[in-house]
Amino acid sequence: MQFKTKMIPLAGAIAFVFAGAASAQEQVVKIGHVGPISGAIAHLGKDNENGARMAIDELNAKGVTLGGKKVKFELLAEDDGADPKQATSAAQKLVDAHVNGVIGHLNSGTTIPASKIYHDAGIPQISPSATNPKYTQQGFKTAFRVVANDGQLGGTLGRYAADQMKAKKVAVIDDRTAYGQGVAEEFVKGAKAKGVQVVAQQYTNDKATDFNAILTAIKAKNPDVVFFGGMDAVAGPMLRQMKALGINAKFMGGDGICTENLVNLAGDAIGEPGKIVCAEAGGVEEAQKKSMDDFRAAYKKKFGIDVQLYAPYVYDAVMVMADSMKKADSADPAKYLPQLAKANYKGVTGTIAFDAKGDMKNGTLTLYTYKGGKREQIAVVK
């Protein structure tokens, strides 16, 4: 009995040595993801996080080797609550955790302040949804985005209001966030360039629920279109109050309002097709439609819910980052960053390639309206 008792720890020690040798052959690559998992737009933040998780799970299932060692990708998910201060804290936490790259943030107002922290640490960052042009105008070589920016998005909506909706007078509301203000300013530029009169400019915030004062002021101006720069959580109640006040103007907005959930938030104020027109900063042309449909089906099977908005772009952002690591044969940010800058990756959402600033080359936009309680595509434009 004594002989056997001595052998057990010895066997355990041998097993430990082999386990240590095996784990030495595997390296962990940490990918950070940040979005609002709490607050009014938590449904969008969770959608983004799900997109990242889907990509990480697929990479691990397929198996990736870097520098002769098998890689295990690990997702470090943080919540920024769509708040700039919380965003910088989350960014610092990821830097301290020595992540190899970051996907996020969701909002422009959180992405921009966080981007300096990642830049100073030399960590590549890809935002799947921040559209304010300032993000990539800071001269940070670590900053990229996989969607078109507000200059393209707001300007396109402004021109569409004039050319297709035949608007002569528009009223503009924004929520004073970096995103809301940016997309509204670009809408105004696009509309004015087409001779449209901006009869009112009003402001709210991203937590507001009562818009009666600003909507009453707008009603007196009798606009053809009301444009809102902000998110769906505010747009829904705003649409309900417009209906209650008898404002019959059409309603436009950027990607922040352009979600499946807007139907639930706005209720019967959603109106007939063409009443609401919004644009998503991205979109697939006919050749890419099958891969996007396949992604949406796989997402629903995995999570039991539909894609809200940007999950496919988050998925592609993770995949293009991983592909750059493969090309560099390293997860060291300094080594794979040059590969990321010259990426030419065919993703679910189309070909991902960046210009010198980190913006998408040939970024597409998708215009939508709502019909029968569902978002319906109008057109894909560039």
Rank of each mutant, 00 (worst) to 15 (best):
F3H: 12
I8D: 09
I8W: 14
L10W: 08
A11N: 01
I14N: 00
F16P: 00
G20K: 03
A22F: 14
V29L: 04
H33E: 12
I37D: 01
I37L: 15
E49F: 01
I56K: 04
G68F: 12
G68K: 13
K69D: 10
K70F: 00
V71E: 09
V71A: 06
K72I: 07
P84V: 12
P84E: 07
Q86D: 13
A87Y: 04
S89Q: 15
Q92H: 09
K93P: 08
V95P: 06
A97R: 14
H98M: 00
I103Y: 01
P113T: 11
S115T: 13
S115R: 03
H119E: 13
P133R: 10
Q137K: 13
V147Y: 01
A148L: 04
N149S: 08
D150P: 04
G151M: 10
Q152S: 13
L153I: 14
L157C: 01
L157H: 03
G158Y: 00
D163H: 03
Q164V: 07
M165F: 05
V170D: 06
V170F: 00
D175R: 02
T177P: 01
A178L: 05
V183R: 02
A184H: 04
E186L: 06
V188C: 03
V198D: 02
T209I: 10
T209R: 14
F211G: 12
N212I: 04
I214E: 15
K219N: 12
V226Q: 04
G229H: 05
V234L: 14
A235G: 12
M242A: 13
A249N: 08
A249E: 02
M252R: 01
E260P: 01
A266V: 07
P273W: 03
P273Y: 07
I276A: 09
G282V: 11
V284C: 07
K289Y: 01
K290I: 02
Y299L: 11
K300G: 08
F303T: 09
D306Q: 12
V307L: 11
A311T: 07
V314S: 14
Y315W: 03
M325N: 10
K326W: 08
D329E: 11
Q339W: 02
L340T: 04
T349V: 13
G358I: 13
L365P: 00
Y368D: 07
Y368C: 05
T369K: 03
G372F: 05
V380T: 14
